[in-house]
Simulated scan of single mutants.
Amino acid sequence: MRVVVTDAEVTLADVLSLRLAIDEPLGEGSRLVLRQRGTGTERAVALGGPGAEASDASMAVSLAPLGLGPGRWDAYLQRDGPERSAARTRLQCVDPGFSLDRLDAYALGRRTLAYRAYRTLNGFLAVRVTQAAPAADVRAVWFREGRFEVTGLLAYTGFADDDAPRPARLALCRPAGPGGPEVAVTAAATVSGVRFHAALSLCDVIDAAPDSEGLWAPSLQVDGLDTPLPLGARIDDVDGKRRRVHYPDAEVDGVPVRPCYTADDELRLEVGG
């Protein structure tokens, strides 16, 4: 039996919606199996049973009741029949799975876990599960007239996507270390609904730490949220931004400044060095 996933999406209600190209009907005993990489933990849903709906070329599976932990889960179709033992096939996928508008819409809700369907490098269907907490998702970074500027989207806050203004402040913080005590520089930021823009003088950063060296972590304090939001870039499908995303450098009073990402896709400003 040949099965290919032609369209894969996790809806706003955390339902895995699949459209399939199949060469024969799904028989009784068919199950969708999700297997976690690394641990081998499995979750199975009977197609047509509770939690799932199946038709000639589509299925819908509610993910939240399955208890999927953070990680990557590979998808299989398993068929049981009276004349054969269980036959398991890893689901091939031709859907590239990238729609930034869809990912943005998903990130507007307040969540503790985020689910995403995607095609692996080898062309198979998988589901990625990550912890979700309010964050400031970066869309653009640039230097202009001696300022560090950044724009982006407030993710997983539950705020409405409207034009309502909210008081906010951008902070750049260098943690305490061999270079000296903790240092922070702040400036007012603009928040409209779930969109933000912030700018901060690089001269103020250099003046705040005369030794200049260090990694500075930006965060956004937004009225209505209990804790500052880290600035990062995790909503899109581009993993490993530390290697793949590079911004132009700047020089302020002879001190080089470079935006960069950490291994877990959080934004930093590298000053000096």
Rank of each mutant, 00 (worst) to 15 (best):
V45E: 09
D56N: 07
P167I: 03
A155T: 09
T157Q: 01
Y106E: 11
D104S: 10
P230S: 13
A168I: 01
C93F: 00
S219V: 05
G273E: 08
T112Q: 13
E149R: 14
A46C: 10
E9D: 12
A126S: 12
L121D: 14
V183T: 11
A233M: 11
L77G: 10
A64M: 06
V45P: 11
G193H: 01
D236V: 01
A198R: 01
G272H: 03
R166V: 03
G81Y: 10
Y156L: 03
L220A: 04
R119V: 05
R234N: 14
V138T: 09
S212W: 11
F124S: 03
L66S: 06
D56C: 01
L103I: 03
C203R: 15
R243T: 08
L229H: 00
W216Y: 04
F143D: 06
I22R: 15
A132P: 02
L77S: 08
Y118Q: 11
D95E: 03
S30D: 03
R2F: 14
R258D: 07
P259N: 05
P228K: 10
E266P: 01
A52G: 10
V257F: 08
D204T: 07
S17M: 00
P248M: 03
L200H: 01
L202D: 08
R147P: 07
T120F: 05
D104T: 09
E9L: 13
R79F: 08
T262L: 04
S212K: 15
A114S: 09
Y261K: 02
D253P: 00
L20A: 04
R79T: 15
A184V: 13
A8D: 04
V222A: 02
G179R: 08
F98G: 02
R144C: 13
R234K: 11
G146A: 10
A114W: 00
A107C: 12
E28T: 15
P96V: 07
V141H: 01
